[in-house]
Amino acid sequence: MATQGNVMTWDRRNWFEGWRLLAVLSLVLVVLSIWIAGMRAFEVDGIRMVIRFTARSSLLFFCLAFAASALTLLWPTSGTRWLRRNRRTLGLTFAASHAIHAVAIICFAVMTPTDYAAATTPASYIFGGIGYAFIIAMAATSFNRSAAAIGPRAWRILHTTGIYYLWFQFMVSFGMRIPQMPNYVWFVMPLLTVMALRITAAIVQRRRSRVVLSAN
């Protein structure tokens, strides 16, 4: 959800960063989810609307956290630097959004077990379970003490593996719906964009490193 350097220090350059940003964004997600469910009197249709809403809000915060470093490297502005400073917060907000998503799914399963069974497959349990395991582990190690406890190498492996797995899971989840619902292509495009940004940033970083080595 962040890089090791970002985990070890929580930079507060202005009021709307760090814990305050996380609290505000999480509260907004909770309020919106309750409002959406309430639009359908908290019945199944409302719960399913919350599931869709939180899937999309999770995508938004995931993409922001995923692309923060690349954007800062490629376009170092005050806005991209703010994103980079707060990518841990954005990652934790993504985790909060997906926690609400999980609660909505559980409500759906309890309220209409038959419809829930029809909407899920063994693969969704397996790959979704792996995704949630990564989210929990990454969120738990996004704090100074927990990150230090597992060490930089283990932290880097966990967060690198986890974030790319989640990217792939989002791609599959949204991409598989495109044949039936072509509008879902608009959810796949941000994922392709942030991956392209990461690849481009990695190439630029490598070239800069070679220039520095050559100069020395």
Rank of each mutant, 00 (worst) to 15 (best):
F168A: 11
A95K: 02
I178M: 09
S124C: 02
S146E: 15
R88V: 15
M195Q: 08
V212I: 13
F94M: 14
H98C: 06
S57H: 06
L64C: 11
E17C: 07
I178W: 10
S124H: 01
L213V: 00
L191Y: 05
Q4V: 09
V185Y: 06
R156N: 07
R206C: 04
V7A: 08
Y116I: 05
L90V: 00
G5T: 11
I126A: 15
A196Y: 04
M39R: 14
G5W: 12
G5I: 06
A65D: 03
V31P: 08
T80D: 05
R84D: 10
S57L: 08
P179Y: 13
M195R: 04
R52V: 11
P152N: 08
F61P: 03
R84E: 11
Q169R: 11
L21P: 04
Y165P: 10
I51Q: 02
E43F: 10
Q169T: 08
L92E: 11
A123I: 10
S78A: 15
N144V: 12
T80H: 06
R13W: 10
L59P: 01
A67G: 08
M39D: 12
R85V: 12
I203T: 13
R52W: 11
A102G: 09
V103T: 00
W82E: 09
F53R: 00
A119G: 03
A202D: 13
T72S: 12
A67H: 02
I126N: 06
F174V: 07
R210Y: 13
V7G: 00
F42M: 07
L83Q: 02
A37P: 00
L92W: 05
S124W: 07
T112V: 06
A102C: 11
I51S: 02
R156G: 01
V188D: 01
I100N: 00
A23Y: 01
M8T: 07
A215C: 00
A139W: 12
R56N: 09
R153M: 12
S214F: 15
F168L: 10
R206M: 13
V24L: 10
A117H: 10
T161R: 06
V172K: 03
I106W: 11
A70W: 09
M8F: 14
I34W: 15
R207N: 15
V103L: 14
F187P: 00
W167H: 07
R198F: 01
P122G: 06
